[in-house]
Write a protein that binds this DNA or RNA. Sequence first.
DNA 1: CCTAGATGGTCAACTTGGTTGACCACATCG
DNA 2: CGATGTGGTCAACCAAGTTGACCATCTAGG
Lengths: 148, 148
Amino acid sequence: MPLLFAMTYRAMTDQMHDRLQELGREPLRPAHGYVFRYLIETPEAVTIVELASRLDVTKQAASKTVAELVGWGYIERCPHPTDRRAQVLALTARGRDYVRLADQIWTEVEQYWAGIVGQDRIEAIRQDLSAYLDSRYGDERVKMRPVW
Amino acid sequence: MPLLFAMTYRAMTDQMHDRLQELGREPLRPAHGYVFRYLIETPEAVTIVELASRLDVTKQAASKTVAELVGWGYIERCPHPTDRRAQVLALTARGRDYVRLADQIWTEVEQYWAGIVGQDRIEAIRQDLSAYLDSRYGDERVKMRPVW
DNA sequence: CCTAGATGGTCAACTTGGTTGACCACATCG
DNA sequence: CGATGTGGTCAACCAAGTTGACCATCTAGG
């Protein structure tokens, strides 16, 4: 059963990457996606250390990933308003654009699947998986790290 | 949605590893599990190269993994009956034992989940995921590689 | 047959994405 | 103020893959 999850996840990300390729966009890795997602969802200023704890990697690893994304122009570091050691991370316009596109493609993939089994099944699955995760982790934040 | 798959997969393997830990068994990595599974499912003699293509890694990588498992006494290399270059890979008693245990724990995990959402939902999910995978890959063998 | 090329397997060097450890600059609390 | 804690980086290392070179053997064509 878990194998099935792994294969499905893999297949879906592959499908997404294919689509990005068609559109001539560089397919960032899931780790990058997670960074984007966190930046978008978090209204407050985000620092490297926070990001690291959220992704459940060391701050060094987070720092490296951020450096990449900065280099590619997807996010930028701004000075922290009150703490002169810290940096605030923020998506650039280019970054927000990428996220918008990615969301759209994810929706396409989901609809592709919905076309096979029906939208209601997908909602059901969403609930059943969430129920499992809630039961295992409760309110505790689920880490979303490599699956391998 | 795919994030949900990744998290669920991660959570389930974590649950399994916890259980193995409790039982005082070393938790092998998923890659090892995949090797076991392939060896068990395949009646014919299996070589390194075959394994590599199945896992969709290079033969060098497969060779390394096999070497580990041989070192730990889970599988053994026997001479190939007709081809003197090749080696036939086979589970040892210890290996078969581990697989038995792992299967049992997977069942436990699944039942834990079934206890929350019901066995019928789980069957439904199994079907829906398979339907997606079939539609994407058809008869072609799905590769089961790292998910990251 | 016997040789040319294909195939099973290994060794070695490199890459990627993480790790731990040391360290600096600044914050904060006594 | 000074001791200690915290945000961030640099550097060295590790794990698990990669590519490339190579050897031994198998197999097909002349």
